[in-house]
Nucleic acid binder design. Structure first.
Lengths: 339, 339
DNA sequence: CTGTTAGCGCGTTCAA
DNA sequence: TTGAACGCGCTAACAG
């Protein structure tokens, strides 16, 4: 029966100490700073650990140190390839340095975000990583009061709580508009899904509109309440064409929408990029496969994850703290067939 | 300066107890079983908690209980949409019941898997969730000795350590072959990426070959060492055609390969499904968008996550344990244009 | 470099 | 139903 709770003979630090003929605190010290212990003691401890199969109890350690090796990570959705990429890259590095990633999805819900932040803070984490710069006031307060580095990611612009790693979505929208304009397009539209929840998509839309306005070019912003999908894309295109049948260049809030648009254009017999130029955002794997292939914007999600891991590790280990560091990971326009 | 460690005034259970005029253990009892405390005391405690903004210290609780509300989850890669879906679905349910998900990617490396398992076990988790049924012997031993439910997911077949939720990859391979045969295809091939690491892909290939053999039909298995991508797919197709230029039906180890094949067929002027039928695996979002759209197999990754959450929660709460439960979440063939 | 001494904040007996 | 006592396994001063 595997359910009994107290039956397992757990090897603890004092057992290791006894086997190695040293005191528990020497073992503890060896585990945390191997160099601070004599070679003889270190070797004895190491072999005792291996023979006994000792595994440290991280909860006890965390309780005593008032700090755990946990990093709390809050994202809108891991189903989104962006965040999956960032969190995976981050986890790989952190894991190799003894940090454990706890993650949760908010599904763009501020109440869920607050719950997750509260839950993670109750583990006395080594760091908190959260998506975006906008949070409920209470969430912000909790994070500001947190006794650990706080990294806000995937967005730059407003003033961060502590550290920030990401890029400007306003700039992305502007780059989308500039690209279409450079291609000779003069009647633009930005098509976005679920922008009422996704503030970063909204910022891209605003940047897009601003850039067009400054260039003296017409630009519609069309949005749909539902999340990105092929159907949403079809509905968005219909709506945009209804507003202005002569639209010749569109930016999509993400590549799922952009690919859906490509698909819908085929269905309608609209030639891309002849009649309509399309530029996406995200550079999904399939952006390169479509026909025509999708011109889009690549944001470097993995770099965001790596930078965050580096930042957190340097704060934790170096002691040297890049106070209020802001890292811009940038983005590039990937020009392909659709625009 | 946010780096000082002991400066934050943490509200602890004893503070709540004092404010509510009860003893700490009554507060503890109230938190764990609200019904076991008198109405008066309960109300007093509740308001004290809210006024003080008390947040339980999960490490202290876990240490005392010899068990944390952590669930360790080990997947090959969160970048893989399958696992992102499963883990997200699981996390959503678990989080609503007070369980925290800690996850890590193995990148199909058994040593990395072992490290992660060891790390998660040192948190005295409430449950362990791991991908597949095959692990290093030591990993298996650790998991078998673990004092918590262990769920192996995304694979059924061999005998599980404890609980299992998934489906048979052998059956998937057979279904792919059957579908192609039913479509009148007589010269088959299975094209797989990175099958030396991905045992489940290998099982699909074996099932595919077995089914073809039993039907008296030729079937090649072609593989490529590198991970799935458009280039890998192109190389695989070239290799398959070199082995047998008359191949008329292929199954891909996943939809990324399948979509890459579709793309490569366009490039080569091979009509799909006229000259070549293609069936994938995974039902990626873009399988429905391609031209022709991709016939594939849908595995219900979210259901796997939900079932796991339900299983774990019932073991943890119900006490009733579905000992050695095996849940088959199945799969369906999604017929579209490519086969 | 090592050992001693005190807790970390809470769950869990058990007696009242 | 409540409270007192005890200890979970470890870290962090400090003294030697």
């Amino acid at each position: 029966m595997r359910r009994s709770r107290r039956n397992r003979q757990t090897i603890k630090m004092s057992d290791v100490a006894e086997a190695a003929n040293v005191s528990p605190s020497t073992v503890s010290l060896y585990l945390r700073r191997p160099g601070a212990v004599s070679k003889r003691a270190g070797a004895a401890i190491q072999s005792a650990i291996e023979e006994l199969g000792y595994v440290p109890n991280l909860m006890a350690g965390g309780l005593a140190a008032a700090r755990s090796r946990v990093v709390g990570v809050v994202v809108p959705s891991m189903r989104n390839a962006f965040f999956a990429q960032t969190v995976s890259a981050m986890q790989a590095i952190m894991s190799s340095r003894g940090l454990q990633v706890m993650f949760g999805n908010t599904d763009y819900d501020e109440a869920a975000e607050l719950d997750l932040v509260r839950a993670y803070l109750s583990w006395s984490p080594s760091a908190m990583v959260i998506t975006g710069l906008h949070h409920a006031p209470l969430t912000r307060d909790l994070l500001r009061a947190a006794d650990c580095p706080v990294v806000e990611m995937w967005e730059l612009g407003a003033s961060p709580i502590d550290l920030a790693v990401g890029f400007s979505h306003d700039e992305v929208g502007r780059a989308q508009a500039r690209h279409l304009i450079r291609k000779g397009r003069r009647r633009l539209a930005f098509l976005g899904a679920r922008m009422q929840d996704d503030r970063r998509a909204m910022q891209r839309a605003d940047g897009f509109a601003a850039e067009a306005r400054e260039a003296g070019i017409a630009a519609e912003i069309v949005h749909h309440i539902k999340p990105a999908s092929a159907e949403t894309a079809a509905a968005l295109l219909a709506k945009a064409l209804a507003k202005d049948p002569a639209i010749d260049g569109v930016a999509a809030s993400n590549d799922t929408i952009a690919l859906g648009l490509l698909f819908e254009c085929v269905r309608r017999g609209l030639d891309v990029p002849q009649h309509l130029s399309i530029i996406g955002f995200g550079d999904l794997e399939f952006a390169a496969f479509s026909n025509p292939s999708l011109t889009t914007i690549r944001p470097f999600g993995d770099v965001i994850g790596e930078e965050i891991a580096g930042l957190v590790l340097s704060v934790l280990e170096g002691g040297e703290r890049p106070e209020n560091a802001i890292i811009n990971t940038g983005f590039v326009v990937v020009e392909r067939g659709s625009a």
